[in-house]
Deep mutational scan, measured.
Amino acid sequence: NKFNKEMRNAYWEIALLPNLNNQQKRAFIRSLYDDPSQSANLLAEAKKLNDAQA
């Protein structure tokens, strides 16, 4: 399933972002599970926040 693969990839990328705190990571990951079709958008948002907090 395409969404499962995208979701799994996004999950690990988000989990490993160095500048997000655990609460932020959990919120993004919860959103991934709520709507796997938004994986790419959620990952992009997480990366933006990660960069902003660098």
Rank of each mutant, 00 (worst) to 15 (best):
K5E: 14
Y11A: 12
E45V: 13
F3H: 15
L49Y: 07
R26H: 04
A44H: 12
A15F: 15
S39R: 15
K48G: 08
Y33M: 07
Y11N: 02
R8G: 03
L42W: 12
R30I: 05
I14T: 01
A40E: 06
D51A: 14
K5G: 03
Q24I: 06
P36T: 04
K2F: 11
E45Q: 12
Y33I: 07
S37M: 13
N19S: 10
N22W: 12
R30G: 03
W12A: 11
E6T: 05
S31K: 11
R30P: 00
K47N: 08
L42G: 01
D35I: 10
P36K: 04
K5Q: 07
N19R: 09
K25Y: 06
R26T: 07
L42V: 13
N50P: 01
R26L: 09
A15Q: 14
E13P: 01
D35E: 10
Y11K: 14
L49A: 07
W12L: 09
K25E: 00
Y11F: 10
D34A: 13
A40Q: 06
F3R: 04
A44L: 15
D51M: 13
L20S: 00
Y11Q: 11
Q38E: 08
F28W: 03
N50A: 03
A46K: 00
Y33H: 05
L17A: 09
D35C: 06
N19Y: 14
N50G: 03
Y11W: 04
A44N: 10
N41A: 12
A27T: 12
N1M: 03
E45L: 15
L42E: 01
K5P: 10
Q53W: 10
L49S: 04
L32H: 01
L43T: 09
A27Q: 06
R30M: 10
A27D: 04
Q53C: 03
S31V: 09
K5T: 04
D34W: 09
N22M: 04
K47M: 05
S37Y: 12
L32P: 00
R30K: 05
Q24A: 06
K48V: 06
N9Y: 15
Q23N: 08
D34Y: 11
I29M: 08
A15C: 05
A10V: 09
W12Q: 11
I14R: 00
R26C: 10
W12G: 05
S31T: 04
L20Q: 00
A52D: 08
Q24N: 02
Q24K: 03
N4T: 07
S37P: 07
N21C: 04
Q53Y: 09
N41T: 12
A10H: 03
P18Y: 09
I14P: 00
N41F: 13
L49R: 06
N1Y: 01
P36M: 05
Q38C: 04
E6M: 08
N21D: 13
S39N: 07
Y11C: 08
A46M: 01
K2H: 10
K2L: 08
L16Y: 15
S31E: 07
A46R: 00
N19M: 12
E13T: 14
Q24T: 05
N41D: 07
R30F: 14
F3N: 13
N19Q: 05
Y11M: 14
N21E: 09
M7T: 05
L16V: 08
Q38S: 08
Q53M: 12
E13N: 13
K25D: 00
S37V: 08
Q38V: 08
N22T: 11
K47T: 04
I29Q: 13
L20E: 00
K5M: 02
Q23P: 07
L32N: 00
Q53F: 10
E13K: 15
N41Y: 15
Q23V: 06
L32C: 01
P18Q: 10
F3D: 14
N19A: 07
N41G: 07
A15N: 13
N22D: 09
A27S: 09
D34N: 11
I29D: 00
Q38R: 04
A54E: 11
M7F: 12
F3G: 10
N22Y: 15
Q23H: 10
D34K: 12
P18I: 05
F28D: 00
A52Y: 10
K2Q: 12
A15T: 15
P18F: 06
D35T: 13
I14L: 10
L32Y: 01
N50I: 01
E13G: 14
R8S: 06
F28P: 00
K47C: 03
S37I: 07
L20D: 00
N19F: 13
R30T: 04
F28R: 01
A15V: 12
A52V: 09
D51K: 12
R30W: 09
L49N: 02
E45P: 00
P18A: 15
N1V: 07
I14Y: 01
P36L: 06
L17W: 03
K25W: 03
A44T: 09
I29N: 02
A54W: 13
D35Q: 11
I14W: 01
N9C: 06
N50C: 02
N1Q: 06
A27M: 08
E45K: 14
Y33K: 04
W12P: 00
S39L: 15
N9A: 15
N22G: 11
A52T: 10
Y33A: 03
A15W: 14
N21R: 09
E45S: 12
A52F: 11
A40K: 11
K47P: 00
Q53K: 05
A40N: 07
R26P: 00
R30C: 03
N21Y: 13
L32S: 01
K2C: 15
E13S: 14
A54P: 09
N1G: 05
R30V: 05
K48W: 10
N41P: 11
K25L: 05
K2A: 12
A46P: 00
K2S: 12
A44S: 12
E6A: 05
D51H: 09
Q24R: 04
A10F: 12
K2V: 08
R8W: 15
N50M: 01
A44M: 13
L20H: 00
Q53L: 10
P36F: 08
N4Y: 12
K47S: 05
N4E: 14
L32K: 00
N1S: 02
K47G: 04
R8P: 01
N41E: 07
K48Q: 05
S39F: 10
A44V: 13
L16S: 13
P36W: 09
W12Y: 14
L20F: 01
L17K: 03
F3A: 07
K48F: 08
A10S: 05
A15G: 09
D35W: 08
A46D: 00
Y11H: 08
D35A: 12
S39I: 14
S37Q: 08
A44G: 10
N21G: 08
N4H: 11
I14K: 00
L49K: 08
W12C: 04
N9H: 15
L16M: 13
Q23A: 10
R26S: 06
D34G: 12
A54S: 10
S39Y: 14
A27F: 15
M7P: 01
N21M: 08
F28L: 06
N1P: 11
Q23E: 13
K5I: 03
S37A: 11
M7S: 04
E13A: 15
L43N: 02
A40R: 11
A10P: 01
A10R: 05
Q23L: 10
Q53I: 11
E45C: 08
R8F: 13
L16D: 09
N19C: 03
N21F: 08
A27G: 06
N9V: 14
L42S: 07
A15R: 15
R8A: 13
Y33E: 03
Y11S: 08
P18G: 07
D51E: 10
E45D: 13
N4A: 04
E6C: 06
N22I: 08
N50K: 01
E6K: 04
A44I: 10
D51N: 12
L43F: 03
K25N: 00
N4F: 12
I14S: 00
A15I: 15
M7Q: 10
